[in-house]
Nucleic acid binder design. Structure first.
Lengths: 240, 240
DNA sequence: CGCACATTTGATATATGTCAATTTAGGTGG
DNA sequence: CCACCTAAATTGACATATATCAAATGTGCG
């Protein structure tokens, strides 16, 4: 059984990009032994801000949104975790936010206690987690700039650009480094969630999408699939 | 001379709160040997986003603002570093923002190369830096909530509450844990900078300050000194 | 095929931004 | 020590981007 698990790691879809990537074969075996998969449907709460989770996890597939709420119900998304991202907080017991599945989500979970044992003997994991955290901090600061200074159109353009960039990386690893090609991806969030992410209302998000479409920055295929014609042009728009 | 430096650490104003606090006497001696002080006047740039700094630092006194700019000049403060906070990024070469002295600033600097040597043999420092970074990430996410969802009045109230809380901690360590007492502190930022922090204009910040004053949430002594009568009441206002 | 829900579109309201004029504060030199 | 001078802050009148409220349309699922 433990062999089967280990085998699973070998063909894990996020093996290279996730923090397991910095583990030796032996360490991986330990981790595989304490790991198990968990599924969440879209909309399910993965963890709340008032309970201490007993596991950490890697996102295998799907998108997890981290949210905060004000007493009167206003909600803000403060982070998005995609496949290969790490979920949970080492060194701290509980997180000051909710984690909710924005799409169907598949997690690779390992018990907190066991993982912390592994941390002690494997500094490279802690190092990797530290690097992750620094990147998240950078991303958070980019969003602070977006929320504080950008117009609605720039916000929506920034958001689409972000997802398109992500889609490019994880989609076409073996694609030829060709010139400006179309980038096509499926929005993991509803308009309402995009609004919660950008500090805008549903209606404003919708209007800005329409505007981006009519200005030729994007095309839509159904409600959720977006095609970006020219990433550079979109980026220029997004950055004022 | 190195003895003098070591002696300086003993009476360092931020000794307990800064990351040096987790060092042994021996380790401290090493750090003291490679550290030196540096002064910046208000408004001086401490480091830019296009140069790799050759030192890390602790803030001894004053306030450092971390800022980002859009091509057309719009500016956003993405972080504030107060006394005892760490300045610089381990593991990454350059920061994606500017650091600027918001007030006169006194730094305790240590060369990057030497510090990284120390890191290798002293895991507790890296651990401490990691914890710092997690706290900064939490703070950044709180700001994302503020910027995305709060009204101008709530934003200004949140900002004042933040600074008042900070003033309480660092000011009255030996104060009796009395009931609701006035909190008095000096604003380290101009109205323009507060605007850059909150994603508001100078005028809106000013109007909201006036409003908070007339509603009895705060009193002003001169332009920069603020007295908060009731922290709890202010917090309620700040949190919607 | 039809239903429920998400999204778009429209009309209007409002919070915050913009532009302009005073007022105030606090440092400097007489 | 006082009066001036400059920069910061306040205040006012008006403009506008985005929110709000309401209806109509579209989409994808059962």
């Amino acid at each position: 059984m433990s062999h089967a698990q280990s085998f699973t790691c070998d063909k894990c879809p996020v093996r290279n990009r996730a923090l397991c990537g910095s583990l030796s074969a032996d360490e991986l075996k330990v981790l595989a032994k304490i790991s198990h998969r968990k599924h969440f449907d879209a909309g399910q709460i993965i963890l709340t801000d008032d309970e201490t989770p007993d596991y950490f996890a890697n996102v295998l597939s799907g998108v997890v949104k981290l949210t905060k709420m004000l007493p009167d119900g206003r909600e803000q998304i403060v982070g998005l975790q995609f496949s290969s991202d790490f979920l949970g907080r080492p060194l701290k017991s509980r997180a000051p936010y909710f984690a909710e599945a924005a799409t169907p989500v598949e997690l690779c979970c390992f018990s907190k206690a066991e993982f912390e044992k592994l941390l002690v003997v494997t500094p490279s994991i802690e190092r990797r987690l530290f690097e992750n955290t620094l990147s998240e901090l950078d991303a958070a600061r980019d969003w602070i700039l977006i929320l504080g200074q950008k117009t609605a159109q720039e916000k929506v353009a920034s958001f689409i650009h972000l997802l398109a960039r992500r889609a490019m990386q994880s989609g076409c690893e073996h694609a030829p480094p060709s010139g400006p090609r179309e980038v096509r991806f499926v929005l993991p969030l509803t308009r309402a969630e995009i609004g919660d992410f950008l500090g805008l209302t549903i209606e404003t998000v919708s209007r800005q999408m329409t505007r981006l479409k009519s200005q030729g920055f994007i095309k839509l295929d159904g409600l959720r699939t977006i095609i970006v014609a020219d990433m550079d042009r979109l980026q220029e728009l997004a950055e004022g």
